[in-house]
Nucleic acid binder design. Structure first.
Lengths: 332, 332
DNA sequence: TTGTAAGCGTTATCAT
DNA sequence: ATGATAACGCTTACAA
């Protein structure tokens, strides 16, 4: 347990040269089967483990991907992180995860740290902030980076943007609610002015526009708490609302809980659709209809785009939207 | 954007030698202030970024900590991971996170991968599995590792174990329920035979023992779903139960939801206490009392133990328990 | 098919 | 206070 064995030690043990060991490590076809066997035996005998950092020093690809997540405690992002990590692990890449807690300063720090650690590329679900070019550090280092979910740096040629097709999702939800006979529909949750809010709201606005109705917009924090508050607001000020599209499931779950507590019959009197289809949707009473963003598939797509870029130099298109679908449950 | 500048480039730009630049990098006091200034100016001028992998090659401490989490989608572990990452980042360490999805095989793979990437140490919330020495790979590599939450490898001298004091927590909960006048209390959730289940149950069993009552144990998966099912079981088979201690909050939230749906008055007729104090506790109706494991503090403790080990060679004690507390809310 | 030797970007040990 | 030079563990021409 002195010091980790190196290829040199393996070479000595197997009676070959360093290079031969290196070739075995790289599964080169050049090396004779019997030699390969000897080398591999030697490795297990002395407990050799590969040292990637050393290898990276020559080849400048660490097999490390930096994953930056604005808020890991949001289950939607957790699910994404977990899936992405699995997808990349399949291809021999390890993920270095940084949770930045919606803090732009922390984001810069972590980007810096990850660059120092030699990540080969970044996948960033960025924090919103005052900085105009929050990903500039990455660009300076000449590393590839994908923006996911949120496009905070407008240079999507440099930092291609991937996100679920929120617009289509909101249209799907609206059609569904109309189809169920809803006459007066509200949109609840999501911070005003943000691109995501605008998108998730777009199908709703389009409909109210066409119907020449005044939209009922209750924008606010994307939290359970806000959903509960919104339930009260609706009961007090908009008792005739019979359908709600929510910014996300947290809001929707709060709305369902709050409305139920105030005696509204969610699922018949009031129909609610959420966004994201997180696990909690199936477990609420009544269970929550939601727009699923197919996160496992989305993570696959992101992973593939990254790997193509890294391995084949294929830069992804500046913007790419992935399919969403409506999951109908009892709340609507 | 050719290739990343190295200290050599900085040296040339600043008109000094490699060594001097290296000294500046290490904040050595030996270097003259004016020289330091020159060097630092040169760095920003040519956009130099430190290359840790290269440095590690010499110093064999990567500043990388491998964090292995059995199930990242469980918010309890997410919270821990997020806190730990922040605590370690404060000290200049980066966390490489691996979610192993309760899969022992994946666990071995990830341990291997992280060792190759040269992590300096591991913090592991392990998966249960058939393997008797799942952390052997780490031992072979001669790396320090902490087990948290679950002790799956019994060699706690090699892999010190840190966990919240579940026993104290369950006692706290029982005292509270008795104090509220509960006469017949059940324990719900947690897989039978697991150490965690035994511990979280221990305060309960102690009480039933002392009171010479038959314990009512509904063990099972630690999920929301199981909590809902348990609510039904209680109504049907144990209608006289007036207090419940749950294995964790997911179970408790399910139980509260299920019981409420069946018309039981949670908080008066039936008093419920959960375990972990996850965020959802405040948001349920009625809000859920729970045993808080003070995860931010726990993460701090874990981080400190790891760093002392790494930096000062101080091996943590084989087992360490951290304080828990009861958070009283409406469900009890 | 295998070996030799040069280099990757840093740190550490000497000198100066 | 600064500079030369040899490691660190690996990959990669090139030579044999």
């Amino acid at each position: 347990m002195d010091r980790r064995p190196t290829i040199k030690d393996v070479a000595k043990e197997a009676g070959v040269s360093k290079s031969t060991v290196s070739l075995v490590l790289q599964r080169s076809a050049l090396v004779k089967d019997s030699t390969r066997q000897q080398v591999q035996d030697a490795m297990t005998r002395i407990g050799y483990v590969y040292n990637r950092s050393a290898a990276n020093l020559r080849s400048t690809s660490t097999g490390l991907i930096g994953l930056i997540i604005n808020d890991l405690r949001n289950p939607f992002f957790t699910e994404f992180a977990a899936r992405l990590q699995m997808a990349l692990a399949d291809q021999g890449y390890a993920v270095v995860l940084a949770n930045i807690n919606e803090d732009p300063a922390l984001q810069s720090n972590m980007i810096n740290a990850l660059i120092e650690h030699g990540v080969s590329g970044f996948i960033v679900s960025p924090a919103y902030g005052p900085d105009e070019a929050p990903l500039q550090l990455i660009a300076n280092a000449g590393l590839p980076a994908l923006q996911v979910f949120r496009k905070v740096d407008p240079r999507s040629d440099l930092f291609p943007f991937l996100a679920p097709d929120y617009l289509a999702g909101s249209c799907l939800a609206m059609e569904h609610l109309r189809g169920r006979g809803c006459k007066k529909i509200a949109f609840v949750g999501g911070l005003d002015g943000r691109a995501v809010t605008r998108e998730r709201m777009s199908g709703y606005l389009e409909m109210t526009d066409r119907a020449a109705q005044d939209p009922i917009l209750l924008t606010g924090e994307a939290s359970h708490r806000f959903g509960v508050e919104a339930a009260e607001t609706l009961v007090l000020h908009h008792p005739d609302v019979d359908g709600v599209l929510c910014f996300n499931d947290l809001v929707a779950l709060g709305l369902v809980a709050g409305s139920t507590a105030r005696g509204r019959q969610v699922g018949s009197g009031l129909r609610v659709v959420g966004f994201d289809d997180i696990e909690g949707c199936q477990q609420s009473f009544p269970s929550l209809s939601s727009i699923s963003c197919a996160i496992p598939d989305f993570a696959q797509t992101v992973s593939q785009n990254m790997l193509h870029w890294l391995q084949d130099g294929i830069v992804p298109p500046p913007e790419r939207r992935t399919p969403v679908s409506l999951v109908k449950r009892d709340s609507s």
